[in-house]
Design a protein around this nucleic acid. Structure first.
Lengths: 263, 263
DNA sequence: AAAGTGGTTCCAATATTTGGAACATAGTTT
DNA sequence: AAACTATGTTCCAAATATTGGAACCACTTT
């Protein structure tokens, strides 16, 4: 499934460790692992002295390491839309006075890369890095809808279709129809499909040649806002998305001739 | 130097890619790399299809991938002090009305894991994940000072001693003396050692058995505050640090018997 | 003191990685 | 249009790292 030799296995293990929400012991990992004792042991050691994991000698537990945070900072800074979109999100959130999300696709899942909370100040990492389902969130559907057919098929096949609420689309067919509608309309809604009482409008962020960069959304609770009111924000969302896409375009130049090495 | 077989090399390459502040081409990487063409090529491929790197086919460039952001979220949530310290930082920053930093040691460097900016709302990832020198920042020195002798020696050996300002300590000996003073006093100052006009007071966060968990600091510009005024905040800093340490203590339990697998 | 649990180390068989060199594919120059 | 050049990609036998069953060690429990 994972492949890619030792490196793939090591990253597998890394994911596994990260997946428990707290430090884990060797035995726990072993029980859940596909790898034999000695192999797992060595992988953990390698990752630990690479600082990808942290080992707590006292409790004999492994936890994801700080090197990841350092690396992710770089990833976030240069390959996420977040730094480019920041100013635009600030403005949008100030204008609409609702929670704004910025997301990208990662492996057929939604990865939130930034957030503005109208009420309280931002919550840092607590949200950047979070993942969510693609088939039942506004941003997820907005992105899926504009994917090239082949990619969309692939992504659809990877959805797990858990019925979170009454409204959740739980079949590929139903979702596909919804995606077509979104494609026509230009933006997506989340009609309490993921969480009861939570609705949103989401807009894809597309390049000139229609490649999906990400999506942004405005979220509200049904007690405070209606779908119709959200829909009225569509032009503002579209404008913001376009502005972000334009900025991204300028940003994405390669380095080209720069490096030099002696004979 | 790096060791750890293929995995080590792959992570090396990952670091390398991250270290350029923007997408890089194969040739650039090759020129700077210790690995031969074919090897580097395969490592990049592996990392790419593991989503640790992202490859832009159009520009033929590599950039750190989104999987890192996902992993780092986990790392930040469970092995950094940040989630535990959040409430305490909020309070402290509200009280002192100055910028507050929370940092941990990563590989003899300072890794900032959270920040409160008195003036404007938080800046997300833009600061969490940032690294800085240990020998010339308040938090860095506060942590170094309370490290067990062996660890401290090792960390000192890894410092690079760039003279950022007139005040920067540039020798191991000078720094060692400063660290002793800090140890006696209980907290550290940054007397414009890293950036002219910027001063701070920093307090280590220690466990019951004096293990260094991290450090926190209050920073100000010389135009707005003096060292003496900062020093008056010491008790508040100490209280906050103690509270964080106490919370961390409770948090850090291992999982213990929980997992089960059928025979 | 014997049995059990959880973690660490060994080592020969095996599968992977290695890297020099050849190959492919634009893009440029003569 | 042919020769040249700069990049990126693929090959393959030799060198090397990974593998995992089993033995071992250090504690804790019965």
């Amino acid at each position: 499934m994972t492949g890619d030799g030792t490196v793939g296995k090591a990253l597998d293990v890394l994911d596994q460790v990260a997946s428990y929400g707290r430090p884990v012991r060797f035995a726990t990992l072993l029980a859940d692992s596909a790898y034999p004792k000695a192999t797992l042991y060595r992988l953990l050691q390698t990752l630990t002295n690479q600082n990808m994991l942290e080992y707590d000698a006292e409790h004999q537990t492994y936890a994801p390491g700080m090197r990841l945070v350092r690396l992710a900072h770089r990833a976030w800074t240069q390959s996420s839309l977040a730094p480019i979109a920041r100013a635009h999100l600030d403005r949008l959130s100030a204008e609409v006075q609702h929670t704004v999300h910025l997301a990208q696709l990662d492996n057929a899942q939604v990865l939130y890369v930034d957030k503005r909370n109208a009420a309280q100040p931002v919550e840092m990492f607590s949200d950047a890095g979070k993942v969510g389902p693609a088939y039942c969130t506004g941003v997820g559907k907005a992105m899926l809808a504009f994917l090239p057919t082949a990619d969309r098929e692939k992504a659809l096949a990877q959805q797990s279709f858990h019925r979170f609420t009454e409204q959740t689309y739980t079949t590929t067919a139903a979702l596909a129809a919804e995606l077509d509608a979104i494609r026509d309309r230009g933006y997506a809604f989340d009609r309490e499909e993921h969480e009861p009482g939570i609705i949103c409008i989401a807009q894809p962020i597309l390049t000139e040649n229609a490649r999906v960069l990400g999506a942004l959304s405005v979220t509200g609770s049904t007690q405070k806002i209606t779908l119709e009111e959200l829909e009225r924000l569509a032009p503002q969302l579209a404008r913001t998305a376009a502005a972000i896409a334009a900025d991204a375009q300028d940003w994405r130049f390669p380095d080209m001739k720069l490096q030099r090495t002696g004979t």
